[in-house]
Simulated scan of single mutants.
Amino acid sequence: MMEFEEGLKVADEALFTKVGRRLTEVEIAILQGSWQSLTYEQISDVSSYSVSYLKRDIGPKLWKLLSEALGEEVSKSNFRPALERKWRSLLTTPTITNFPVTNSRQDWGEAIDVSIFYGRNPELITLSQWILQDKCRLICLLGMGGIGKTALSVKLAQQIKDEFDYVIWRSLRNAPPLENLLNELVLFLSNQQDNKAELCQLVQYLRSHRCLVILDNLETILNANRAGYYRSGYENYGELIQVIGETAHSSCVILTSREKPAEIATFEGVELAVRSFRLNGLQAEAEKLFTAKGLFGNDVDKQRLIECYGGNPLALKIVSTSIQDLFDGNISEFLAQNTPLFNGVRRLLDQQFIRLSASEQTVMYWLAINREWTTVSEFYEDI
């Protein structure tokens, strides 16, 4: 009988073959819970995801993707037999050792699905120009959690991938040691021929080929109490960033982060090969998200809702689900409650706030207390 780990591998490879990406954490959580015959409510209890997010958003999309990847209709209740049939077919076919790879020179790792993507056209145009015309070597996408850095990096890479010999997307969410990351990058860029996990080897491949490398969630290796600096044991990432920014090569490395590394601040410039791009919230585009979530209201209420959450896409998705569940999609009724902070939105802010130093947290407290524009001198007196 097939074990869950084997079934997960089959699902992951089938999805990668079909759409060029791996299973995400939330998709794995749904598969694992469903494997154990748990309801969406029970999966929600053992994970950090809301029931509505699992049941109405990610779940249906996952079963649809797996149906396409496995070539048969699957659902939460019958996906196990489908995976087992696929597994057995691989075991009984000696000539097939693995799923075919759609493009051996593209590795999307855990890149998220961006088939549904709202706005960001000006940002995509600017970043594409920086990379393709200005030949930037290093770009850092900056913004608070949930603002859409990851989604933008994937969408951008998909749009310009044909301009590169190699494309590789990697998440640093689990804080891999630099040696592990270098090993993955060098192996991929050498077509699995070179296992020398050294920075000089990586630079050699960045010079000899036109490569697009995206490293997501850089903030996980940064020191939460000292802006721009690294966690203990990860200081060598600073050398990686410095060398990529300083050394002449024909490739582009994109970093996404909530905080700017010190090396970026040192080497960046509006006309230099190292640049940073701060991502702001959605504005008019957010109304498309409301429509997709089944919300309704007048233009004034929609704009109030967008401003309340700074146009943060993740916060707006969280609140939209709650408005649909509790107020039947009526934005006006939700705003009348005057309770913008709850559950997932609070967790999102807590994740950001906890990374601030004690001094930075004090600044944030006084900004919240004053509630109005404050001069530097008045702010100094307050603190």
Rank of each mutant, 00 (worst) to 15 (best):
I214L: 08
S322F: 06
T374F: 00
Y166H: 11
P313A: 02
A284T: 12
W130S: 07
C211Y: 07
Q106P: 00
F327V: 04
W366L: 05
E13A: 12
S322N: 10
F164Y: 12
V345P: 01
L349V: 06
C308Q: 13
F117K: 03
P340A: 07
E360H: 06
V186G: 04
Q129A: 12
L178R: 11
E268A: 12
N217D: 15
L178H: 08
R210D: 06
Q242H: 14
E372A: 13
P261V: 09
W373M: 09
L326N: 14
S37N: 15
F353V: 11
R22P: 00
L90G: 08
G329V: 07
H209T: 08
L222Y: 02
Q337G: 03
T24G: 13
L279M: 13
G109I: 09
T150H: 09
L8Q: 11
D350R: 14
T126A: 14
E372Y: 06
R210K: 15
V376C: 05
K55A: 12
L182D: 10
R258L: 07
I147C: 00
V376T: 12
Y166V: 01
F327S: 02
I318D: 00
S34L: 04
F79I: 02
L138F: 09
Y230P: 07
I160Y: 10
L206E: 06
N191K: 13
T247Y: 09
E259F: 03
A11F: 07
E360T: 02
R105A: 07
N225R: 14
A69N: 04
V10D: 00
G245T: 04
R120S: 06
S115L: 06
L348H: 03
D382C: 04
N312S: 06
Q129C: 09
S34E: 05
G145Y: 10
L282T: 03
L305S: 01
A368P: 00
D134K: 13
W373L: 11
R346Q: 15
G59F: 00
T374A: 07
I254E: 07
E285L: 00
